[in-house]
Amino acid sequence: MNVLRSRFTQAVLLLVLAFAIFKFGIRPPAPWSVLTLYMAIVFLATIVYVSSDSDSWREFLGPLRTTVMDPGKRPLRIALGIVIPVLLGYYAYTQAAAKPQAPPELRAVHPAPPASIQFRGKEITIAGVENPLRKDTASLGKHVAAGGEIYIKNCVYCHGDNLDGKGMFAYGFNPPPANFEDPGTIAMLQEAFLFWRIVKGGPGLPKESTPWNSVMPAWEDRLTEEQIWQVIMYLYAATNQQPRRWESSH
């Protein structure tokens, strides 16, 4: 199998294999932006691989040089001269053509909370604050149950029965509501962060990184401080996750 021994063929096979793995081996499918990033890295690594010694580099360039220089390869050159611009043109078209979908945007992972917020005229510190209801160890179950009731009445429509962000309204929103089952959401956050997000909702998000496109309402006019802490307790209990603790600060 001389063809397989060729460095050029190896490089092409490597790229095709990598694309196949990224495209079909990752489920659910990887977003196109990530796929492009991965392929760029694999391409770079492949070029490094074939050119990391002179013999290999010469061997890799051989077919390219022959295609460009060899008089016998003129039909191939003409074919490539047509196919490559057509492919590039098609790619440019797919990128530039109007689509029914909104274009993807860079989104921040999570917004930075303020040090303190105003809640119904009262200043509540966010930085370093713990859920006050957790001190009442005897009533933890009661608070979680109350939180569950609040969740069902108010939050379930977007965040879903299973707290997975697939509520009945969820399909109308972009970005979709937060999936609390994902270990990368509430488990990464202190309860005070959730408190801020629930109290101030989408309108209370910081100016930087706008537009946030969040439809989360500000619940400060509808829920009491205790109710918000209760629903937070429910979120962690129902998803079997632990809130992040505060680091000791200076």
């Binding site: 499918p29 196109w32 979908q101 909104a102 972009n174 994902d182």
Partner: peptide, 11 residues
């Protein structure tokens, strides 16, 4: 994209 987000089950 929104379709990708839905396929992923979230952001």
């Amino acid at each position: 994209t929104l379709d990708e987000a839905r396929a992923m089950g979230g952001t």
